[in-house]
Structures are given as structure tokens and as C-alpha cells.
């Protein structure tokens, strides 16, 4: 009995110790835009999940494709039905590592440039992706910001010929997530 108790205590202790290394949000923001001379397509997502494991130097994002909000309803419908096929592929995920994690002091306020490398899975395709960004450590929270480009062709997202002058193959992605310590 005693063994069991101390055993479970140890498990709880390690769990809570691990937890202090982890930061998360479920209300992160990701917006994207695709610019051509004829049309500017923009959308925003407010329910992005992001987890950073400061000890392991890992970072992960998860996003439900249907959560992107467009100003025009028609664009949103086309995005979901014709481009990302969100019924078939409801989620996009990124899992990667912070290459310069050792340079970041998570217990001290400061701004850090970070380089992240990992795999981005979307529309049934997975690609190696690298992005630069910043991490702002402030009062026990971490603000994660990054702007990077992806190519729709890498994810087998096809642009119909009739709109090829309105929809750019290059999509600019803007990530802004404010993470809090994960308490269990």
C-alpha cells in the first residue's frame, strides 16, 4: 500500500514537474493572405492550439481548417470546398523543434529570435518546413510570432485555371500565439 502510494505520488510529482516546462494556448491567432494584382484574399483563425515544450525544445500547432473566417462568405465556401477540402481534411498540424532552444531563457523576460524546423501536414500532404520567428518571454508567458510563406502546390492544393490570376500559389502566413504555463 505504502509502495503504491509513494509510487503514485512520484507519478504526480513527475507529471507536475514536466508540466512546468510546457506552455500552451487554445486561442492562438493565425491569419493568411494571398495577394495578386486582381484580388487580395485574407482569412483569420482565432482558435489555434499551440504547445511549447521548453525542456525538449519542441513546438506544435493544431488548427481546424473550417475555423478560418473570411470577410466574404463565397471565399470561405470556395476555400473549404474547392481548395483545402476541409470535409476530407479537417485539420492542419505542425510539429517541429526550436533549433536554437538552448539560447532561450524561459525564466527571464526577453525577446528572442527563433528558428523552427518541422513538418507541416495539411490537405493530406506533409512537408518539411522551416520558419523564422520571435519568442517574447514576459512575466511567465510566451508570445510566439512568425511570418512565413508556403506554396499551395506543395500541398497539392490546385488553383483552377479560370482564377489563376486571382489566387496566388504563394500564401503568406502570420502566426501570433500567446502561451501560458500548463498547470495540471
Amino acid at each position: 500500500m505504502k509502495k503504491l502510494l509513494s509510487g503514485s505520488l512520484l507519478v504526480i510529482l513527475t507529471l507536475s514537474l514536466n508540466a512546468q516546462d510546457k506552455y500552451f494556448t487554445k486561442t492562438g491567432n493565425i491569419s493568411f493572405n494571398s495577394k495578386t494584382a486582381l484580388e487580395n484574399i485574407e482569412a483569420r483563425h482565432k482558435s489555434v492550439t499551440c504547445v511549447v515544450d521548453t525542456k525538449a525544445g519542441n513546438i506544435a500547432f493544431a488548427i481546424l481548417m473550417k475555423g478560418f473566417e473570411f470577410e466574404k462568405a463565397l471565399m470561405q465556401e470556395h476555400f473549404n470546398e474547392n481548395y483545402v477540402e476541409s470535409n476530407k481534411f479537417p485539420k492542419a498540424e505542425f510539429k517541429g523543434e526550436i533549433l536554437n532552444n538552448a539560447e532561450i531563457n524561459y525564466s527571464k523576460n526577453g525577446n528572442y529570435s527563433v528558428k523552427v524546423k518541422g513538418k507541416l501536414a495539411m490537405h493530406g500532404e506533409t512537408n518539411d518546413t522551416e520558419a523564422m520567428g520571435t519568442m517574447i518571454v514576459k512575466d511567465g508567458k510566451i508570445q510566439v510570432n512568425s511570418i512565413f510563406n508556403i506554396l499551395l502546390s506543395d500541398y497539392k492544393i490546385e488553383i483552377p485555371k479560370v482564377v489563376s490570376d486571382k489566387v496566388s500559389n504563394t500564401v503568406n502566413i502570420d502566426v501570433r500565439c500567446s502561451l501560458e504555463p500548463l498547470k495540471i
Partner: peptide, 14 residues
């Protein structure tokens, strides 16, 4: 818009 299942953070319907 869907379901985020996550053992660590708890799962959510959005």
C-alpha cells in the same frame, strides 16, 4: 468547425 482531441490539454469541440 470540428474536434481537437488532445490528451495533454483536454479535448474540445469548437
Amino acid at each position: 468547425t470540428g474536434f481537437n482531441s488532445d490528451e495533454l490539454l483536454g479535448s474540445d469541440v469548437i
